[in-house]
Every structure is written in structure tokens, then in C-alpha cells.
Design a protein around this nucleic acid. Sequence first.
DNA 1: GCGGAGGTTTGATATATGTCAAAATACGGG
DNA 2: CCCGTATTTTGACATATATCAAACCTCCGC
Lengths: 248, 248
Amino acid sequence: MTKALNVIQTLPLVSQLRSHCSSCNLRELCMPVEISSNDMQRINSLTQLKRGYARGDYLYRSGDPFHSLYAIRSGSFKTQVLHEDGREQVTGFQMTGEIIGMDAISTDVHTCDAVAMESSEVCALPFDQLETMSRELPSLQRHLHKIMSREIVRDQGIMLLLGSMRAEERLAAFLLNFSQRLAARGFSPTQFQLRMSRQEIGSYLGLKLETVSRAFSHFQDEGLISVKVRSIEILDMTRLQTLLKSSS
Amino acid sequence: MTKALNVIQTLPLVSQLRSHCSSCNLRELCMPVEISSNDMQRINSLTQLKRGYARGDYLYRSGDPFHSLYAIRSGSFKTQVLHEDGREQVTGFQMTGEIIGMDAISTDVHTCDAVAMESSEVCALPFDQLETMSRELPSLQRHLHKIMSREIVRDQGIMLLLGSMRAEERLAAFLLNFSQRLAARGFSPTQFQLRMSRQEIGSYLGLKLETVSRAFSHFQDEGLISVKVRSIEILDMTRLQTLLKSSS
DNA sequence: GCGGAGGTTTGATATATGTCAAAATACGGG
DNA sequence: CCCGTATTTTGACATATATCAAACCTCCGC
């Protein structure tokens, strides 16, 4: 019983999105603008190149030559940068429906690693084709720009988080961000699975894993969330949000 | 004597770049690609809208509607985001020749403030015109994408800095970054003025001003740099770089 | 040149988070 | 189902940076 439920909760994005967007891999890329079905077809013709990845597989590595952006069709990835001295930092977690790979446009070489956090499928979007096509389809062009800009804004938010928030605020921000992104895709914003380890969360938030764990425990003690290792349930969304807005 | 020297050091960017780029405000935007002088002329026609700003003036504020990117023609700006609770964080320092305003493309509304750190001039680049024109000029399109991507990569570097570096490493990274950007524009990479306060540097680096000050002092004691409040001279570039590469 | 204000440096102390270590729990293969 | 391994939790302690406070510059207007 509980086991079956767990399985359902474990794969929410995968199954639902796969059916919902079967011929529309570019949900993220195309959703917010009006595109004629004719044009849409052209855009979708870009998405021929599908590939599957197992947990731990690299979608690309730092230093790889750039040719495509990737639309995540199912599963999820993390991106990380490696420091010369061996330290590595997670710079983002990408879920189904998001676009990944924009770091490489400026240099034609990827500047970070992208690693699958579970079995995942992506569509490669050859960037020169995207550029060519967006010259003819202003709405695609506009949207491409928006996606890139959104990435910039996202990064700014993380800078704020890393630069001026304390451990528990960071974790609250992290959870709420996850919650929002799930909600935006039609999933439960209060119950979800984390695909990444405490250590990865810590790396992303600029904290050590022990600190992350303690913060989780504390939130649970306070009745804000219920944690069972990687299963999260948000019990008091409002109070979690308050944590962010009031500085102390 | 010393006074005269100071003045010269104080305004290196302003005077030199102004003469060097008098009719080429879009150095940053156009430099790395081959553009015919005919096209170049068209692109420069975009740059009609020049405006001056005094120290402390806002180029734009968070919430302002978006219509233009800005090429900084002279002077320098800082960008900052404001948290609900009043905390604010500097997200970047932009110098002459750089492009600012890309945060707003995704939402059509600016998501941060941009404030002049000295008397500055900018060219407004109406974004819809940039888009239109880049549909016809692939090299401009490509370059626009590169600039946006560079912003993403830059942010990733700061995330690394904020997430996994210690105070002195952060300051070293900051100084070296400045040095590089100056060098890229033909200025002395070892002697320069900082336009921002210790508090602003601290905000950018996720540190308190006292910590920044102490780190400066320590670098000076170690013979790495010579600091005279806002005048910096890098004495031992190599050792400063080493600070970054060896985790300590 | 003087005086005041804002910015900077330096010192003493507090605190959040890191570090090290061990126990508890989850997970995967046989 | 059980065992071995990896992850997570919890605890005790160390430390980098924040905080608070005072003295010191520097710049600017008078």
C-alpha cells in the first residue's frame, strides 16, 4: 500500500509530462507565446534528436564543444562547476520541461557539467538552427531571449540567497522555489521528492550537508514541513514564506 | 605632484575610452564579430539616445518597464536587488563598454536597480529594434546571444565565489576580475581605482565591510597589493592568483 | 586652513556555520 | 530477507566571519 503510493509520488513529473507533452517537447520554449500550428510544427521538427540518460550520466561536460540546447523531456539534471582545486559547486537543478545548456553560447564551449539525477530524456535543440529559425519567427526569437534572460534573473536570485541569507532562509527559499516550479507544471506544490542528496543541496546553497540536515530537522520540529529523507511535505507554506520575508 | 597623478589615475576609463570609441559606442556589442561598415552604420544608428547620469542617479529601478538595453559609454554603474525586508545586495559592477539591463527581458520589467557610481553616459538600445535588426544581421543576433550568455556565465562564477570561497579568496577573485576587465579594455591591470565603497564590495561578495577592510589590510601586509583607500596597486599578481587556485 | 560627515581601519567579543566523529537509517544486490 | 555500503542524523567542538564600538582618515564646503 504505502509502497505503491511511494512509487506514484516518486515519478510524478515523468509520467504525467510525458503524456501531456508527447508531441510538444518544447513546452518551456513555446508555451507563453502564440505560435501558429504551422510554425509550431517547424519548431518541433528541431526536436528530432532525443536521447536517454541514466542516473549519473553526463549530458555534457565542462569543456565540451557547444552545439545544442537541451529541452528536458523527462527526469532531472543538476549543473555543477568544478574549481581548479577540486572543489565543485552545484549551480542549479533542472526539472522536466526546463531548458539547459545556455552557459555555452558565449564561448562555444560548455562551462559546467550537466549530470542526470535520474533516468532522463532530453531533446537536443541545435543552436544554429534555433538561431536561423528565430530570424524568421519573431515569436520564437522573443521567447529564446526571454528564456535566456530568465536564466539571468534566476542566477541573481541565487546570488541574493548565497550572499545575504542564513542557512534556514536558504533552505526555505530552496523548498519554496521547488514548490513553485512544481506548481507551475501542475504538480502538488506541497508534496514532492527531492532527487538530490543533502550534500548536493548543501553545495547548491553554499552550506555543508550537516547544516542542511539540521535545518531540515529544525523545520520539522517547528511543524513547518514533514521530512522523510527525500520525501518532503510542506505543512505550513505561509510560515515558510514568512521565514524569507522577515529577516531574522 | 601627487595630486596631479591622482587625478590622472582617477579618470582612466572615462577619457581614454571616450576618445577611442567616440563613434563606436557598441564596442562591447560589436567588437568580436566581423560586421561590414554598412551594417555597422545601421547598428550605430540605434545609439541615438544618449543620456548622462550623475553619481547616485538611477539608470533604472526595479519595477520599471523594460524597453532598452544600455551600453555604458563612460563611467560605471552598480546593479542591486532589494529584498522585501530591506536588505539589499549588489549583484554586479558594470564598467565603461559593458552592456546592462538584460535582467528585464524575460519579464518586460526590470528586476534590479542600476545606479551610477560616478558621472556616466549611456546609449539606450531599444530592445525591439535590436531584435528586429538582429533578424536581418545574423552576426548581430549571434553576438546578442553571446552577450546574454556571458552574463549567465558571469553569474555562475559569482555563485561559485559566494558558495564556496572564503573571505580572502573572494576579494582576490574580485580584484583579479577587475584587473582582467581593465586589461581587456587596454588599461593598466595592476593600478586602478575602485569606485565603490567597502560596504558595496562587501555586499557584492557576501561579506561585511569590516571583513573586506581586514582582507585588504592583510593582503597589504603580505605584500600582495598596495591599498590607499580606493587606489589599488597589485604588486604580486601571481601570488594573488595562487590564492584562488590552492584552496588553502 | 577648519570642521563636520561619511567612509575606513582596527580591536574585542559573539555567533552561525564548519569540522570531526559516531550512531542511526535507508538502499541495493545476492 | 539479510548484509554491506552509502546517506542521513545528531552531537561536541573549532573557527571564520559578524557584530559592536571606537579611533582614524579623507574629502568638501565654508
